[in-house]
Simulated assay, not measured.
Amino acid sequence: MLFSLKEIIQWIGLSAFELWLHVVSLLVFSILLALKLEGVLSTTWWTVFIPLFASDGLHAYFSSIVFLRLNLEGDLRTAGIRTAWSAVVLVLPFAFKMLLCQKLEDQNNLTFAMIMSPVFILLQVLMIRACQVGN
């Protein structure tokens, strides 16, 4: 069973625009990844990950605009909660992507378990949020 857009937005805590932004960047990243793995592109891994980092930057910019608008409307509690959640959703995947790029470029000698740890933490936070939303 597939989830509706409303359910996904409620569980993940992102707007439809933010989801669209990440889906488009994931599509471009997938194309660049396939070209890199097939040997068509001879660039660094940092270049392949540029769409994902760009979407993180745009997501942060969009979140700051939402925070400022909610503050101007006087809804401080909602602004704080949404900003904290957006920070978690931005920082953990960004850390994972940064560590993965460094590993692929042989710039660090971390194990893959340590590189995947931000993803595991994010999954636990999403699980807690899904339980809160479900009630």
Rank of each mutant, 00 (worst) to 15 (best):
A113Q: 08
T83D: 00
A113V: 13
F94S: 14
A54S: 14
E38D: 09
G74M: 05
S55K: 03
L68Y: 14
K6W: 07
G39P: 13
A130W: 10
I81T: 05
I128S: 04
F29G: 05
G39H: 11
A60D: 00
V133H: 07
V40F: 11
V24R: 13
L2W: 12
C131G: 09
K103N: 04
L41G: 02
F17A: 11
L52F: 01
S30N: 07
C131T: 05
I9T: 13
E7L: 14
L26T: 13
W11Y: 15
L14T: 05
R77L: 11
F112S: 02
L92I: 04
M127W: 11
F62K: 08
P51W: 07
V28D: 03
V133Y: 05
A16I: 10
K97P: 00
L27P: 00
Q132S: 02
M116A: 15
S64E: 06
E7G: 00
L123T: 09
F120N: 02
L5A: 11
F94E: 01
R69G: 00
K103V: 05
Y61P: 00
I121T: 10
F67H: 12
F17I: 04
G74P: 06
R77W: 12
G39C: 07
T111S: 15
S25Q: 03
K6N: 11
G13H: 06
G80K: 09
L14D: 00
L99N: 03
L33I: 09
I115F: 01
S25F: 08
R69D: 13
K97Q: 12
W20R: 14
F120A: 15
L2F: 15
V125A: 09
A113E: 13
R129T: 07
E7S: 15
L99F: 10
V133Q: 14
L99V: 01
G57L: 10
Y61W: 15
A79G: 07
D106R: 13
V91N: 01
D56F: 08
W11R: 15
V89I: 12
L33S: 13
G57F: 12
I65S: 06
L5D: 14
S86R: 06
G80A: 05
Q132C: 06
F53N: 04
W85Y: 04
S63G: 11
L14F: 10
W46I: 00
A34P: 00
V48H: 04
F17C: 01
I12K: 08
L104Q: 04
A79Q: 07
S15H: 10
L35V: 05
A130P: 00
V119F: 03
F112E: 06
S64I: 14
G13V: 07
F94A: 15
W46Y: 14
Q102T: 02
W45G: 02
S86K: 07
R77C: 00
F62Y: 09
L35T: 07
G134K: 09
W46L: 12
N109W: 04
R69N: 12
W45D: 01
Q102R: 09
C131Q: 06
V89F: 06
W45R: 01
L122M: 14
F67A: 12
T83P: 01
F3H: 11
C131Y: 05
I121C: 05
Q107L: 15
M98T: 15
S55V: 05
L72D: 06
L68N: 07
L104M: 13
L58T: 03
I121F: 04
S64D: 07
S15F: 08
D56C: 12
F120H: 02
C131S: 08
N109V: 09
L32F: 14
A87Q: 03
